[in-house]
Amino acid sequence: MMNNAIVLDGVNHQLNDKPFFKDLSIELREKRIGLIGRNGSGKSTLARMISGLIEPEAGEIRVHGVDIAKDRKKAIETIGLIFQNPDHQIIFPTVEEEIAFGLESLSGNRKQAREGARSFLASFGRLDWAERGTFTLSQGQRHLVCLMAVLAMQPKAVLLDEPFAGLDWPTTRRLYHWLDGLEQQVVLVTHDIDHLESYDRILWLEKGQLIADGAPADVLPAYREKMERLVFSDDEILGPGLPATNGEQG
């Protein structure tokens, strides 16, 4: 229990051949962490670095004591990554195979992994999904499969990269609610800041730099205000003001 934190130490990393993350150091001990920022702020790259999929060019990242970029065997026991789009995460044609894959990686035993996947599905009351084709599932069901596939591996931390996009309101709320109950450390990358109010700590990233880091009550209102101001001003993502439309007076 000594080392249950995500620690970035002097991380430097380039994006498109330009220095992007410059000497980024953070220590995340809180149980619920939100990561916010605009498109292109580096959230997804940071998520991939924390998951060990991208190794920073300089600096060190340890998740619960594990060097996740080098020690991949330990890494997959330690941190699970939920991708933005379930179609990017789901590898296998049936639900059972998809869930068994991670378990097989952990145990090295295919038969045991299949049994594990079935009992895990049963514990979710979804045993009837085992034989179903992952492509026949609805969007919301696919998101749930992604969550189950990662949680079946019992990682110590779960990182979600803008999950649940395109899901209807009740489904999103239900998944978030369930997420809140997990015992794992959770890092949530999102634009959906309403869900972050109950979180312990919010990181606000822009262009690879931390703009703000603190409690939701301090960071979220500032973020909202800044984003509101950008709606009607020129900015670097969409460029200068858009032409007036009929519905707009003056």
């Binding site: 997959i76 990017h88 894959f101």
Partner: peptide, 13 residues
């Protein structure tokens, strides 16, 4: 690349 990442996120091999 994405499939490769999805694989590596859950397998050390």
């Amino acid at each position: 690349t994405q499939l490769n990442q999805a694989w590596r996120a859950r397998s050390p091999r």
